[in-house]
Design a protein around this nucleic acid. Structure first.
Lengths: 192, 192
DNA sequence: ACCTGAACACCGTTCAAGT
DNA sequence: ACCTGAACACCGTTCAAGT
């Protein structure tokens, strides 16, 4: 009689995501994930490899199917605003910058492909489009990293919901992000 | 006979910085720092508090005396380019984004005061200047965080010196940073 | 073949015991 | 008063042992 358990990699990632949502990234350990699945660590290692690989998979989970569809008569600047907004939302959901700074660059590259295609369609040459995507992606990830420092779960301070100790309100942050992206788009357009 | 040891907080921070430079942020532990100072952990706790406080102090170390002097007839856009360049250099020295994303915002606010003053001197109104500083600071920190992900020391991959696996060379990164900052400066100027 | 239990070498942090 | 040694509750990871 085999004691084998139906333990697919997606279930492991899902368990990690659940723990992340409930208790923060610091609560995600090989042991806590295994335990949530009713298993000891070795079976998890057999499926996922190690903790880095698990966190990569969790990050990929948040970036999956990120890009919205391009509207037929939508120019790239408008699409870029929607795309970066979407990326920002996904990263914000992950709620811990350590997770998505550690994600390998190829994942962002993959996610930015529709944006690149939209720029090419509007006549931007390949090098410029690649550079523009890089600029917008880095700016968005960097911005969210700054906006959601990794001091949430472990060192919970006086972070009252809605009021920020540093004196920056959520509206100001939204406005800052929009302005940031608009300035970049303006600059990219002006160079073409 | 007292076994008391001359152990000042600055020495503790210096030891942590040394370990960070030599072996990366993951090698900085309360135990490794204590051990380098020839001491057990409790005396370190007595001086510094805990690990978060130690890392805050290490981050402050890298941001200390950051702002270059403002030249007499230098307009704020030029100074902003120098200031963000300096900030980028300091953050790059720290070499691990986890360190400076975790630094409390007041440290950046302090560092940006000369930039704010320079903008005010050039006639920008207070709200605009505060917003512009925030934009430039966040963009710089975010950019460096993206450029130096925390996968250096622990998970050392095939990161050949000079050649980047993601296909972005150091020159391209420099150019990307300059362009990013220039676009922001242009945008800020255009709104005034 | 695949899981469990236990181990190894680490953490951050605290505390009784020594001097 | 202040340091040491040891402990507690965790890590990531591996491996012999069981079934």
């Amino acid at each position: 009689m085999s004691a084998e358990i139906d333990l697919r990699p997606e279930q492991i990632v899902a368990a990690a995501v659940d723990i992340l949502r409930e208790s923060g990234l610091d609560a995600v350990s090989m042991r806590s994930v295994a335990s949530r699945l009713g298993v000891t660590p070795p079976p998890v290692y057999a499926r996922i490899g190690n903790k880095d690989a698990l966190l990569d998979a969790v990050a990929d989970h948040f970036l999956a199917d990120l890009a919205p569809a391009v509207d037929r008569d939508e120019l790239w600047p408008d699409y870029a605003r929607r795309w970066t907004g979407q990326l920002r939302q996904r990263l914000t959901e992950a709620a811990d910058s350590r997770l998505f700074l550690q994600v390998k660059r190829p994942a962002y590259l993959e996610a930015s492909r529709p944006l690149l295609k939209c720029m090419r369609r509007d006549g931007m040459d390949r090098d410029r489009a690649v550079r523009a995507c890089r600029l917008l992606t880095w700016a968005t990830v960097g911005f969210v990293a700054m906006d959601h420092p990794p001091l949430d779960a472990p060192r919970r301070r006086n972070r009252l919901a809605g009021s920020d100790p540093a004196g920056v309100t959520a509206e100001e942050v939204d406005e800052l992000f929009s302005a940031h992206i608009d300035y970049l788009i303006d600059g990219i357009q002006r160079e073409s």
